[in-house]
């Protein structure tokens, strides 16, 4: 273990292992182009007032309502230095009470139905719900099960669906950026 003596102003900075120099610049990557139809789709739903109030900043809250964890892995990837979600004003928050957007993954299981409903209710208005992946969009392979409710729309109103199994990070980013764009324009002063 290294010494943790306090360092005086004159002593040279101890050499740290150079590992982190290995990350070359070029990260994060430029954002993917957003999909016009997504923007149009959302623009219809987002009220002018909400745009003014929230600006170009959205707090996201995820509920895994019965996912295989694949979609979570790709949501995690959005936060790595390649995609760096936060530079767009999008960030994940720990409490639904701080959130503007609910992301739902998984074919909603009966055992998670109540938790999903209660999380949705805990988010203050105005709020949006994004179904992430094929499972919450359609129920995926699980919709016929005794243990599943099926698509997330059976439990909460869905504003945007990002298909894929799981959606690639670029698709997630494009979808969320579309939400943000429709939220920030037009009419925002």
């Amino acid at each position: 273990m290294t010494s943790d003596r306090p360092r005086s102003a004159s002593s040279p900075r101890p050499r740290r292992p150079t590992l982190f120099g290995l990350i070359r610049s070029g990260l994060p990557e430029p954002p993917p182009p957003t999909d016009d139809t997504l923007v149009r789709d959302l623009g219809l739903r987002v009220q002018e007032r909400a745009r003014q109030r929230l600006g170009r900043s959205l707090a996201l809250r995820l509920v895994d309502a019965g996912s295989c964890n694949g979609c979570e892995l790709e949501l995690h990837a959005l936060q790595n230095p390649f995609y760096d979600l936060e530079r767009f004003g999008l960030r994940f928050v720990a409490s639904p009470r701080h959130a503007d957007v609910l992301l739902v993954t998984g074919a909603v299981t009966r055992n998670m139905r109540e938790a999903l409903e209660r999380t949705y209710q805990a988010i203050p208005d105005p709020k949006w719900v994004v179904a992430v992946g094929d499972c919450p969009a359609t129920g995926g392979l699980f919709s016929q099960s005794y243990a599943c409710v099926g698509p997330a729309s059976a439990v909460v109103p869905i504003d945007l669906t990002i298909p894929g199994c799981p959606p690639r990070p670029q698709d997630l980013l494009a979808g969320l950026l579309a939400l943000l764009e429709s939220n920030g324009k037009p009419g925002r002063r």
């Binding site: 019965g66 295989c68 699980f142 016929q144 099960s145 243990a147 599943c148 199994c165």
Partner: peptide
């Protein structure tokens, strides 16, 4: 048990292609 999706129940009677897709998920 919150994410119990009933995979073993869904697998019953499935052909190998569909069953493999379930196993992968």
């Amino acid at each position: 048990g919150y994410v119990h999706r009933g995979v073993e129940g869904l697998l019953r009677g499935e052909d190998l292609e569909q069953a493999a897709a379930l196993a992968a998920r």
